[in-house]
Protein backbone atom coordinates (compact mmCIF):
# COMPACT_ATOMS: atom_id res chain seq x y z
CA UNK A 1 0.00 0.00 0.00
CA UNK A 2 2.74 2.37 1.00
CA UNK A 3 4.69 1.85 -2.23
CA UNK A 4 1.45 2.32 -4.11
CA UNK A 5 0.89 5.71 -2.54
CA UNK A 6 4.45 6.75 -3.20
CA UNK A 7 4.21 5.58 -6.79
CA UNK A 8 1.00 7.48 -7.22
CA UNK A 9 2.53 10.62 -5.79
CA UNK A 10 5.58 10.36 -8.00
CA UNK A 11 3.52 9.70 -11.09
CA UNK A 12 1.18 12.49 -10.10
CA UNK A 13 3.97 14.95 -10.57
CA UNK A 14 4.42 13.91 -14.17
CA UNK A 15 1.00 12.99 -15.55
CA UNK A 16 -1.19 15.95 -14.74
CA UNK A 17 -4.65 16.40 -13.25
CA UNK A 18 -6.09 12.88 -13.43
CA UNK A 19 -3.23 11.37 -11.54
CA UNK A 20 -4.27 13.32 -8.48
CA UNK A 21 -7.16 10.94 -8.10
CA UNK A 22 -6.90 8.58 -5.16
CA UNK A 23 -7.08 4.87 -5.86
CA UNK A 24 -10.54 4.79 -4.29
CA UNK A 25 -11.69 7.49 -6.70
CA UNK A 26 -10.23 5.53 -9.62
CA UNK A 27 -11.91 2.24 -8.73
CA UNK A 28 -15.19 4.04 -8.02
CA UNK A 29 -15.11 5.76 -11.41
CA UNK A 30 -14.12 2.50 -13.11
CA UNK A 31 -16.96 0.67 -11.40
CA UNK A 32 -19.39 3.36 -12.53
CA UNK A 33 -18.11 3.25 -16.10
CA UNK A 34 -18.31 -0.55 -16.25
CA UNK A 35 -21.62 -1.20 -14.50
CA UNK A 36 -23.61 2.02 -14.00
CA UNK A 37 -23.79 3.75 -17.41
CA UNK A 38 -27.10 5.59 -17.75
CA UNK A 39 -29.94 5.08 -15.31
CA UNK A 40 -30.75 1.74 -16.94
CA UNK A 41 -29.94 -0.26 -20.05
CA UNK A 42 -30.44 -3.36 -22.12
CA UNK A 43 -28.29 -5.56 -24.33
CA UNK A 44 -28.51 -8.79 -26.28
CA UNK A 45 -25.63 -11.05 -25.36
CA UNK A 46 -24.18 -13.94 -27.32
CA UNK A 47 -21.86 -16.06 -25.26
CA UNK A 48 -19.56 -18.50 -27.02
CA UNK A 49 -17.96 -20.99 -24.66
CA UNK A 50 -14.94 -22.67 -26.23
CA UNK A 51 -13.20 -25.58 -24.53
CA UNK A 52 -9.57 -26.50 -25.06
CA UNK A 53 -10.42 -28.91 -27.87
CA UNK A 54 -12.12 -26.03 -29.70
CA UNK A 55 -15.72 -27.22 -29.44
CA UNK A 56 -18.15 -24.37 -28.85
CA UNK A 57 -21.39 -24.00 -26.92
CA UNK A 58 -23.54 -20.95 -27.38
CA UNK A 59 -25.84 -19.10 -25.02
CA UNK A 60 -28.00 -16.17 -26.05
CA UNK A 61 -29.77 -13.95 -23.60
CA UNK A 62 -31.14 -10.48 -23.13
CA UNK A 63 -29.85 -8.49 -20.21
CA UNK A 64 -31.67 -5.63 -18.47
CA UNK A 65 -30.03 -3.49 -15.83
CA UNK A 66 -31.37 -0.73 -13.66
CA UNK A 67 -29.66 1.46 -11.10
CA UNK A 68 -31.66 1.82 -7.90
CA UNK A 69 -31.12 3.60 -4.59
CA UNK A 70 -27.68 4.11 -3.06
CA UNK A 71 -25.68 2.27 -5.73
CA UNK A 72 -27.81 -0.87 -5.60
CA UNK A 73 -28.84 -2.41 -8.90
CA UNK A 74 -31.30 -4.86 -10.38
CA UNK A 75 -30.56 -7.23 -13.25
CA UNK A 76 -32.81 -9.36 -15.42
CA UNK A 77 -31.43 -12.09 -17.66
CA UNK A 78 -33.72 -13.87 -20.12
CA UNK A 79 -32.36 -16.88 -22.01
CA UNK A 80 -33.18 -17.59 -25.63
CA UNK A 81 -30.60 -20.27 -26.44
CA UNK A 82 -29.72 -23.09 -26.12
CA UNK A 83 -33.05 -24.89 -26.25
CA UNK A 84 -32.73 -26.40 -22.78
CA UNK A 85 -32.33 -22.94 -21.24
CA UNK A 86 -34.99 -21.31 -23.41
CA UNK A 87 -37.31 -19.06 -21.35
CA UNK A 88 -35.27 -19.45 -18.19
CA UNK A 89 -35.02 -16.11 -16.44
CA UNK A 90 -32.71 -14.90 -13.74
CA UNK A 91 -33.09 -11.86 -11.49
CA UNK A 92 -30.42 -10.32 -9.27
CA UNK A 93 -30.88 -7.58 -6.72
CA UNK A 94 -27.35 -6.41 -6.11
CA UNK A 95 -26.76 -4.77 -2.74
CA UNK A 96 -23.78 -2.57 -1.99
CA UNK A 97 -24.22 -2.35 1.80
CA UNK A 98 -21.66 -4.55 3.51
CA UNK A 99 -24.17 -6.26 5.79
CA UNK A 100 -26.64 -7.00 3.00
CA UNK A 101 -26.47 -10.03 0.71
CA UNK A 102 -27.55 -9.95 -2.92
CA UNK A 103 -30.84 -11.69 -3.68
CA UNK A 104 -31.08 -13.95 -6.70
CA UNK A 105 -33.89 -15.93 -8.27
CA UNK A 106 -33.98 -18.38 -11.14
CA UNK A 107 -37.16 -19.10 -13.06
CA UNK A 108 -37.56 -22.66 -14.40
CA UNK A 109 -40.40 -22.45 -16.94
CA UNK A 110 -41.13 -26.16 -17.39
CA UNK A 111 -41.79 -26.50 -13.65
CA UNK A 112 -43.31 -23.03 -13.29
CA UNK A 113 -40.86 -22.76 -10.43
CA UNK A 114 -39.25 -19.71 -8.91
CA UNK A 115 -36.03 -20.90 -7.30
CA UNK A 116 -34.12 -18.74 -4.88
CA UNK A 117 -30.33 -19.10 -5.33
CA UNK A 118 -28.01 -19.19 -2.34
CA UNK A 119 -25.87 -16.06 -2.01
CA UNK A 120 -22.69 -18.12 -1.59
CA UNK A 121 -22.62 -19.10 -5.25
CA UNK A 122 -21.17 -15.82 -6.59
CA UNK A 123 -17.86 -17.29 -7.75
CA UNK A 124 -19.54 -20.20 -9.53
CA UNK A 125 -19.57 -20.38 -13.30
CA UNK A 126 -22.41 -18.51 -14.96
CA UNK A 127 -24.37 -21.07 -17.06
CA UNK A 128 -21.29 -23.18 -17.70
CA UNK A 129 -19.19 -20.34 -19.10
CA UNK A 130 -15.82 -19.06 -17.90
CA UNK A 131 -17.59 -16.02 -16.49
CA UNK A 132 -18.71 -16.25 -12.89
CA UNK A 133 -21.96 -14.81 -11.54
CA UNK A 134 -20.01 -11.94 -10.02
CA UNK A 135 -18.64 -10.90 -13.43
CA UNK A 136 -22.20 -10.34 -14.66
CA UNK A 137 -23.36 -8.02 -11.91
CA UNK A 138 -20.00 -6.69 -10.71
CA UNK A 139 -17.96 -7.41 -7.61
CA UNK A 140 -18.65 -5.18 -4.65
CA UNK A 141 -15.77 -2.70 -4.24
CA UNK A 142 -15.87 -3.20 -0.48
CA UNK A 143 -14.88 -6.85 -0.89
CA UNK A 144 -11.31 -5.85 -1.74
CA UNK A 145 -8.58 -3.44 -0.73
CA UNK A 146 -7.26 -1.44 -3.67
CA UNK A 147 -3.77 -0.32 -4.48
CA UNK A 148 -2.56 1.73 -7.45
CA UNK A 149 0.52 -0.14 -8.57
CA UNK A 150 1.29 1.58 -11.83
CA UNK A 151 0.21 4.49 -14.00
CA UNK A 152 1.11 4.39 -17.68
CA UNK A 153 0.51 7.04 -20.30
CA UNK A 154 -2.98 5.65 -20.94
CA UNK A 155 -3.90 3.40 -18.03
CA UNK A 156 -4.05 2.95 -14.29
CA UNK A 157 -3.10 -0.45 -12.93
CA UNK A 158 -4.89 -1.32 -9.69
CA UNK A 159 -4.18 -4.33 -7.52
CA UNK A 160 -7.18 -5.67 -5.62
CA UNK A 161 -6.74 -7.94 -2.62
CA UNK A 162 -9.76 -9.67 -1.07
CA UNK A 163 -10.64 -8.78 2.52
CA UNK A 164 -11.85 -12.34 3.07
CA UNK A 165 -9.41 -14.54 1.12
CA UNK A 166 -11.32 -17.66 2.17
CA UNK A 167 -14.36 -16.61 0.13
CA UNK A 168 -12.62 -16.57 -3.24
CA UNK A 169 -10.30 -18.70 -5.33
CA UNK A 170 -7.79 -15.90 -6.14
CA UNK A 171 -5.20 -14.27 -3.90
CA UNK A 172 -5.44 -10.97 -5.77
CA UNK A 173 -6.25 -9.53 -9.19
CA UNK A 174 -5.02 -6.52 -11.09
CA UNK A 175 -7.18 -4.33 -13.30
CA UNK A 176 -5.96 -2.04 -16.09
CA UNK A 177 -8.22 0.97 -16.38
CA UNK A 178 -8.24 3.39 -19.32
CA UNK A 179 -7.46 6.92 -18.15
CA UNK A 180 -9.75 8.66 -20.62
CA UNK A 181 -12.92 6.58 -20.19
CA UNK A 182 -12.24 4.85 -16.85
CA UNK A 183 -13.36 1.58 -18.44
CA UNK A 184 -11.57 -1.46 -17.00
CA UNK A 185 -9.88 -3.06 -20.00
CA UNK A 186 -8.19 -6.10 -18.58
CA UNK A 187 -8.24 -8.00 -15.32
CA UNK A 188 -5.67 -10.63 -14.38
CA UNK A 189 -6.35 -13.09 -11.57
CA UNK A 190 -3.58 -14.73 -9.58
CA UNK A 191 -4.04 -17.92 -7.60
CA UNK A 192 -2.87 -18.67 -4.06
CA UNK A 193 0.63 -19.47 -5.41
CA UNK A 194 0.85 -16.14 -7.23
CA UNK A 195 0.42 -17.72 -10.65
CA UNK A 196 -1.70 -15.98 -13.30
CA UNK A 197 -4.62 -18.30 -14.10
CA UNK A 198 -7.48 -16.17 -15.43
CA UNK A 199 -7.89 -13.06 -17.56
CA UNK A 200 -10.97 -11.00 -18.37
CA UNK A 201 -10.52 -8.51 -21.20
CA UNK A 202 -12.67 -5.89 -22.89
CA UNK A 203 -11.61 -6.50 -26.48
CA UNK A 204 -13.95 -4.07 -28.25
CA UNK A 205 -15.28 -0.76 -26.98
CA UNK A 206 -17.68 1.65 -28.66
CA UNK A 207 -19.35 4.83 -27.53
CA UNK A 208 -23.12 4.36 -27.39
CA UNK A 209 -25.39 7.30 -26.48
CA UNK A 210 -22.28 8.98 -25.11
CA UNK A 211 -21.29 6.06 -22.87
CA UNK A 212 -18.07 4.17 -23.62
CA UNK A 213 -19.38 0.60 -23.78
CA UNK A 214 -17.76 -2.80 -23.98
CA UNK A 215 -19.21 -4.63 -26.97
CA UNK A 216 -16.96 -7.67 -26.80
CA UNK A 217 -15.25 -9.25 -23.83
CA UNK A 218 -13.20 -12.39 -23.49
CA UNK A 219 -12.42 -14.44 -20.42
CA UNK A 220 -9.69 -17.05 -20.50
CA UNK A 221 -9.13 -19.81 -18.01
CA UNK A 222 -5.43 -20.59 -18.34
CA UNK A 223 -5.76 -23.74 -16.20
CA UNK A 224 -8.41 -25.45 -18.34
CA UNK A 225 -7.47 -23.84 -21.67
CA UNK A 226 -11.09 -22.76 -22.08
CA UNK A 227 -12.35 -19.33 -23.01
CA UNK A 228 -15.65 -17.50 -23.33
CA UNK A 229 -16.39 -14.64 -25.71
CA UNK A 230 -19.27 -12.30 -24.96
CA UNK A 231 -20.65 -10.21 -27.80
CA UNK A 232 -23.09 -7.44 -26.97
CA UNK A 233 -25.57 -6.02 -29.45
CA UNK A 234 -28.71 -3.87 -29.51
CA UNK A 235 -27.34 -1.89 -26.60
CA UNK A 236 -29.53 0.93 -25.36
CA UNK A 237 -29.35 3.17 -22.32
CA UNK A 238 -32.00 5.15 -20.47
CA UNK A 239 -34.90 3.11 -21.80
CA UNK A 240 -37.18 3.91 -18.87
CA UNK A 241 -37.33 0.53 -17.12
CA UNK A 242 -39.53 0.23 -14.06
CA UNK A 243 -38.31 -1.31 -10.85
CA UNK A 244 -41.41 -3.54 -10.83
CA UNK A 245 -40.03 -5.40 -13.87
CA UNK A 246 -37.51 -7.05 -11.56
CA UNK A 247 -40.15 -8.70 -9.35
CA UNK A 248 -41.43 -12.28 -9.34
CA UNK A 249 -44.40 -11.20 -11.46
CA UNK A 250 -42.09 -10.66 -14.39
CA UNK A 251 -40.38 -14.00 -13.99
CA UNK A 252 -43.75 -15.58 -14.75
CA UNK A 253 -44.46 -13.06 -17.46
CA UNK A 254 -41.19 -11.83 -18.97
CA UNK A 255 -41.35 -8.12 -19.83
CA UNK A 256 -41.55 -7.05 -23.48
CA UNK A 257 -38.10 -5.54 -23.22
CA UNK A 258 -36.60 -9.06 -23.12
CA UNK A 259 -38.95 -11.13 -25.27
CA UNK A 260 -38.87 -8.91 -28.33
Amino acid sequence: MKTGIIAALLLGLTTGANAELSVDEIVTKANEAAYYAGSDGRADVTMNIVDKSGSTRTREFTLLRMNTKGGSQKFYVYFKKPADLYKQAYIVWKEVDENKEDSRWLWLPALNLNKRIAPGEKRTSFVGSDFVYEDVSGRNLKEDTHELVETTATQYVVKNTPRNPGDVEFSYYTVMIDKDTFLPRKAEYFDKNGKLYRTVEATKVETIQGFPTVIESVVKDLNTGGSTINTFSKIEYNIGLKEASFEERFLRRPPREVTR
Binding site: E101, S103, R116, I117, A118, P119, G120
Partner: peptide
Protein backbone atom coordinates in the same frame (compact mmCIF):
# COMPACT_ATOMS: atom_id res chain seq x y z
CA UNK B 1 -41.20 -18.28 4.74
CA UNK B 2 -38.00 -18.37 2.74
CA UNK B 3 -34.89 -16.25 2.75
CA UNK B 4 -31.15 -16.10 3.03
CA UNK B 5 -29.31 -17.15 6.16
CA UNK B 6 -25.53 -16.95 6.10
CA UNK B 7 -24.48 -18.06 2.65
CA UNK B 8 -27.48 -20.33 2.20
CA UNK B 9 -31.24 -20.35 1.82
Amino acid sequence: AKGTLGSGI
